[in-house]
Write a protein that binds this DNA or RNA. Structure first.
Lengths: 198, 198
DNA sequence: GCGCCTCAATTAAACACTTGATTGACTCGA
DNA sequence: TCGAGTCAATCAAGTGTTTAATTGAGGCGC
């Protein structure tokens, strides 16, 4: 159970602190983020938190990295064949459904990016990559004939992103409407299972 | 310049406080909402704020009402004829574009609704009304032949809401992608101006 | 008109508690 | 012994809320 080396221990503790902060933000928002609570949750003293993260700001940076990493790993899903597009949509939806905290924290970060240039830059970068990924998936699907070849891939990718991003808002994510929205997207794309392609 | 009656004066001051809080939330989020700052911004003493709003919580309630009212007045737009749908989409987009604060505060409220049942209830109610409005617009458009008659109006309405709601997130609202997304929606709906209907 | 009272509105100054950050001592493995 | 890691205790600056006092407009008897 105990880590073998100092370095691993140190990593463990840092990660534990970041994850505690992540959970705190998910539960109470940035509004309710308290260094004491995070330290308690991680089972250490406040001073220990400040040993690893000199300022609260740097702890937040850690949460940003952790959160984006969590999300990125889903985006890089290596689905099999032609319906990569469909599986991508479902993967994102499943991710938020299985871990609602991730959606909430992403939402908090998105809102914070309006006041925090560092976060804004990171989010913009990630969104750019996401947009390119989606556009590539759409182009391939168009080439393979599973979606209409004359779709404006830029615009469709933007629409997919907007819809998926709206899941970070509890008012959207909680009800049944997000599933309805995704279903309609699949219908229009022609990638829904019941009516395979045309 | 001076209000004529006591009641009007009182209303003015309450409104001034609510609007100051509204601006504070837009600028700093709930995280940065301070009663002193709000009072200062409204040009009164902190105690005066608490004279009108016994607790910070009740001040926030005031902001919720104010914000939802602002949004509702746009939803009830009485556009002319068949392209009510299109004009509704544009009205919402224009609203957020002209007053970015509204989008940000709505986003903050949406996130807060995860921890505040009172806000959750209000937002859910508003979303229900919005969904019904959109569905009605879609059904009328289908009857009039401007959109495909076999669309699942529930699902399309949900998709429209998700896309529009994503505008409350700065990461979406700031770039050009939200306009691309809306353009694509109009294309699929068949309500875009360049290719009127089919 | 004039003195007296009432009361809504407003304020300066606390009050009680929180919060991010620091300090200095202690632990314990290498 | 040395130093990375940890903690109890502490600090300065907030932070929502309250209190006690002041102001000034309106009512009323005279």
């Amino acid at each position: 159970m105990a880590p073998t080396t100092r370095t691993a221990e140190r990593l463990d503790r840092k990660t534990a602190l970041v994850q505690a902060a992540y959970r705190a933000i998910a539960a109470e928002g940035f509004e309710g983020l308290r260094t004491r609570d995070v330290a308690d949750e991680a089972g250490v003293n406040v001073a220990t938190l400040h040993y690893y993260f000199p300022t609260k700001e740097q702890l937040i940076r850690g949460v940003v990295e952790y959160t984006m990493g969590r999300f990125r790993s889903t985006l890089e899903s290596r689905a099999a064949s032609s319906d990569q597009l469909r599986s991508h949509l479902h993967a994102v939806r499943r991710l938020i459904k299985n871990e609602p905290q991730l959606g909430i924290v992403m939402g908090e970060l998105a809102l914070r990016s309006a006041r925090d240039p560092a976060i804004a830059r990171i989010m913009e970068e990630a969104n750019g990559a996401w947009h390119r990924t989606l556009r590539a998936l759409l182009k391939r699907a168009a080439r393979e004939g599973s979606v209409h070849p004359e779709l404006d891939t830029d615009d469709v990718a933007a629409l997919l992103m907007a819809t998926l991003t709206s899941m970070t808002l509890p008012t959207v994510a909680s009800g049944p409407r997000i599933d309805q929205a995704l279903r309609q997207l699949e219908r229009w794309l022609g990638v829904n299972r019941s009516r395979p392609s045309n």
